[in-house]
Design a protein around this nucleic acid. Structure first.
Length: 296
DNA sequence: CTCCAGGCGCCTT
DNA sequence: AAGGCGCATGGA
């Protein structure tokens, strides 16, 4: 994990920058693969918000370069978010050895999964249903701007806000949320925020449950069905075997694994249950990104 | 203009 | 249990 240069001492001496040595990490693909919605490309780097910190991330020869507007003592939050300790070659080696995955891995080398804040991730995906990724980003951006808290950013940037807590959203009116252009999803987000804020469900407890039970818990929330639960479990709770099946992945599975047969979502979802193994979620992300950016 | 987007909940059979 | 449909909004 260590790298030459001043940043090596970042654990001891507070610094506004950190060089992380990591191989096989395609930052652009990772941040632009529909798992997180608050990153923007600017001047060859990516700017976004992780928790309550503004962050700039850049790909370097040896890995990633991270920058914050204020000195940081402990960078664990960022390393956790970017999952730089994950051995990607081991992940890919655990995939089924088949031609579709081989092609997807070859075409999307360095694509990674992030580990996001669980509430932010869950709430963002509640807002994702029948929306294109660009629109999800717009809605999430508006939500942060109106209900998030101001956080420290470089002086030449417009104001930046954190993702609003469940407690903050729970006190909103439905019409306030609708003003963020989320349409029929507003009562879902509001209802889920209230359940979380009331403590009727403890998100921190979920990651210690078996996948099936954690999923069952999340699906008690309004607006959270199987697909959205699996996205949150994979991107926000660390369940690497979760495999969300959306229209893109369904299309990929049909075309790559069942090319001759007619579309049969039922059968395909049964196939998914047993085929992809302990790193199924990673396989899903490769198929999703491959289908979305490389096929047709 | 029409079609559809990282779905879900509810109402019918 | 399984299938159909409405839902807001805005790109393509």
């Amino acid at each position: 994990m260590s790298s030459p240069g001043p940043a090596r001492a970042a654990g001891a001496v507070p610094s506004g920058s950190l060089a992380v040595a990591v191989r096989h990490y395609d930052l652009a693909a990772t941040l632009d693969s529909g798992q997180a919605f608050r990153w923007e490309a600017r001047d060859g780097a990516w700017e976004g918000v992780v928790g309550r910190r503004w962050l700039r991330a850049r790909q370097t020869e040896s890995g990633l370069a991270l920058e914050t507007p204020e000195p940081v003592q402990d960078w664990d939050w960022a390393l956790r978010y970017f999952q730089t300790s994950t051995d990607l070659e081991a992940v890919v080696a655990a995939f089924p050895q088949d031609e579709p995955l081989r092609a997807a891995v070859a075409a999307c080398h360095g694509l990674r999964l992030l580990r996001q804040d669980s509430w932010e991730c869950l709430a963002s995906f509640i807002l994702s249903s029948t929306k294109q990724i660009v629109q999800i980003r717009q809605i999430v951006g508006m939500l942060c701007q109106r209900f998030g808290e101001r956080i420290v950013a470089p002086p030449d940037r417009p104001p930046v806000f954190s993702f609003p807590s469940a407690e903050r959203l729970a006190e909103c009116g439905e019409s306030e949320l609708r003003d963020c252009k989320m349409g029929f999803r507003a009562p879902y987000l509001l209802g889920s925020a209230r359940v979380v804020a009331d403590g009727q469900i403890d998100l921190r407890r979920l990651e210690s449950l078996p996948l099936v039970e954690a999923r069952e818990e999340l699906m008690r929330l309004p607006g959270v069905g199987r697909k959205i639960a699996d996205c949150a479990l994979l991107f926000g709770f660390g369940f690497q075997e979760a495999f969300p099946v959306d229209v893109w992945v369904l299309k990929a599975l049909q075309r790559l694994y069942f090319p001759k047969r007619r579309a049969d979502p039922k059968r395909i979802k049964r196939f998914v249950e047993s085929y992809f193994g302990p790193r199924a979620g990673y396989a899903q992300q490769y198929l999703f990104h491959y289908m979305r950016t490389k096929v047709d």
